[in-house]
Every structure is written in structure tokens, then in C-alpha cells.
Design a protein around this nucleic acid. Structure first.
Lengths: 184, 184
DNA sequence: TCTTGTTGTATGTTATAATGCACATATGTA
DNA sequence: TACATATGTGCATTATAACATACAACAAGA
């Protein structure tokens, strides 16, 4: 079950309760069966756009008020809690801590590069920027043939639409935080 | 097929073409099969929220940019082009010309009331307002026991959360335009 | 207590969203 | 021409959204 349906679930339930409506009444207003409404409120189903549209119209509310989620005050993520994406035979590992959020326009990864590994990054769109904070080891960053050395404690910022590669020429694994920002 | 899917269809196609991506590439980015993407772009299907979410994330765009529609410059609606809602044994007819639009917060109906018909309106929420322009016949409007006479060419405006009824005591059918406005 | 009605949930069926694969149509290359 | 690669569409299958109906839990009266 996709997280967005949890948000929708909460929103529909909250609005219905605020207005002191029964499932039958909302079914009458929206033209969606109360069985379906119940499943949506319980987060047991994955509604179609049309169904959600009917609900928004029936309740006289905007589409976005159904899909918005209350921002969690605190969220703690760790490498252990996510599934790593590996490349270069496991020598290059990326942990998506905070995947792309359309509202915030960025995503955050933990990144690990084993010794003697060089990883060419996927090309990005125009306006995309990266921020890399190195926590352990020394990262070598090649941006358009030019080499940049990033030591632990330092953060580098660059335009990611240019071809670039991450390299670890050292003896120990490089660990860093990668933030990717997308233009509005 | 619900109109909103036409908007989604156009948006996905436009964004994909702008970025010069193939269906295969978008499928790779979003995790949605290219067959489904093709159907969505052709407006042949009614996608689920989760599918749309995957597309928005894959393309790194907001949810709302998928559902927004370019406002048509001109739209002509008539009673003949919509399905009437009838009550009071067909003596009271409502034609939803412009159904509720969450963005605009109002809806517009054509309304016809045959002679000797009195129709009690559904109760509305707080803050809802009605505007009624009479084009033919004389409308009698009862708002909280009080009687208002509306002649052709006149428009009446009132708070629709108060109990109200439409009445035609004349000889000919009353025809009017009804606009309902909902609070933001 | 026995209705009577109102609420939300559970079930079986139908409609259809979503997929995977095969196909057709280019477009370029040897 | 023959071959290869990439693109969008058509089709059969599977998964599941949506519905109609029946059911269970609870409440308010009579």
C-alpha cells in the first residue's frame, strides 16, 4: 500500500467526521459506494483518479486537500531502514533516506564508495544541483574532466547536469551524504 | 471517461515530449509499464492514485502539475447537452451546466419550475450563497418564512444555509439561472 | 425487551486497471 | 537490400477497484 493512500485515508475520514456525516451520506453526495468509501478510509484500497475526483466534488473540497499530508515533526531514517541500490558489483551503494518529494523538490541519500571504485553518475536535467558532504574517507569528484578533492567534514556543491563521476582512490570506504535538488 | 483524465493525459504527454523521453524511458523512471503509460496518454484508462504518484515521482514533478488543466478560453453549455435532475414528479428540473469546480468554488445550473410546483431546497453548509437570475415567469422564493418575488430580468442573492424553497404560483414555467457559491 | 433505524464492516460479483509480450512502423547502418 | 535498434500500439492475462447486498453492532424509543 502506497503511503499517499494513508494520507488520503486520513483526510477523507477527518473531513467526514468534522462534518458529522455517515458513509451513507458521503456516498449519496459523491456517487461513490459506501463500501468503497469505507475501504478508502481504512486504507485498504488504491482509489482511481475518478473516484477521488467524485469524493472531492461531493464534499465540495479541492483535490489537493485530499492528497496533502500533515508533515511529520520528526522523522528518523537510517541506512538500515531502507533498501540499498548497488552498482559496480556492490562497490557503490546508495541508500535513499528521503526519496523525491514533489513538494520539497529534493531527495537525500547516504552514499558509500569502496576503495578503487569509480562511478559515473546518471546524467541529470538542467538546473539539478547536488550537495555532497563527506563524512569518512576522501572523495574524488570529476566534473567535466576537472578533479575536485573533498575531505571529511567538507561539502561540495555543483551543477549536476554536467557529466560527473565519483571516485575513491584511497584505502578505506568513502561515506557521504548526497542531496539532490530539482528546479521548481 | 472523466474529464480529469483528459487533462492528465495531455499533461503527461506534454511533459514527456518536452523532455524528449520515450514511453520506455518513462516506464523505467516511474516503474509504470509503458503499456499503461500509453493508455494514460491516450486517455483510454482511469489511473489509480498510486500509478499517478509513481509517474509524478519518476518525472520529478508535483502531483498537481499532473492534474491541472489549461482553462478553456470558451466553453458553451446548454440544457440540451447535460442530463437533467428532476424532482417533484418532473415539475422541478435542474441542469448542471458547470458542476462544482474545486478551483473556482462554485457551480452553475439552469433551473425550471412548472406551474403550481413548490420545491424545498436541500440544506446547504454555512457560508454557501446562491444567486438566482429569473429569465421567464415569476419566481417566489421563501427564505425563513419570508416571501420574495423575483421577476424576469432580476437576480436575487441570499445565504443558502437558511432553509428556503422555490415556488411557482403562476401559469407558465419559471426559468432561471442558479449559481451556488461555496466558501473557500 | 422487542422493535426500528442507523451505523460501519464483510462478502461475492463485475468491471476494469495494470502488466507482459508480441507486433507494426519507422529510422538508420552495413 | 538486409539487418539492427528504437518507438508506440494491440492483445491476452492477471490483479484489483468498485459495486450491490447482506450482515453485525449499537442506539433510541415504545
Amino acid at each position: 500500500m502506497h503511503p499517499i493512500n494513508i494520507s488520503i485515508s486520513k483526510n477523507v475520514l477527518r473531513i467526514r467526521k468534522d462534518r458529522k456525516l455517515s458513509l451513507d451520506q458521503v456516498a449519496e453526495l459523491s456517487g461513490v459506494s459506501k463500501a468503497m468509501l469505507g475501504q478508502i478510509e481504512r486504507g485498504e484500497t488504491n482509489p482511481t483518479i475518478t473516484t477521488l475526483w467524485k469524493i472531492a466534488n461531493g464534499l465540495r473540497i479541492s483535490f489537493s486537500s485530499l492528497i496533502k499530508e500533515e508533515s511529520a515533526l520528526v522523522t528518523i531514517m537510517s541506512k538500515e531502514s531502507v533498501v540499498a541500490l548497488t552498482e559496480d558489483e556492490g562497490k557503490y551503494r546508495v541508500y535513499p533516506l528521503f526519496p523525491f518529494d514533489p513538494k520539497k523538490q529534493f531527495e537525500m541519500y547516504a552514499m558509500e564508495i569502496d576503495p578503487q571504485c569509480c562511478h559515473e553518475s546518471e546524467p541529470h536535467h538542467e538546473g539539478v544541483e547536488e550537495y555532497i558532504s563527506v563524512t569518512e574517507g576522501t572523495l574524488e569528484l570529476l566534473i567535466e574532466q576537472e578533479l575536485f578533492i573533498v575531505n571529511p567534514g567538507s561539502t561540495i556543491h555543483f551543477q549536476a547536469e554536467k557529466p560527473h563521476a565519483y571516485r575513491n582512490s584511497g584505502e578505506s570506504t568513502v561515506k557521504c551524504m548526497l542531496t539532490v535538488h530539482y528546479p521548481g
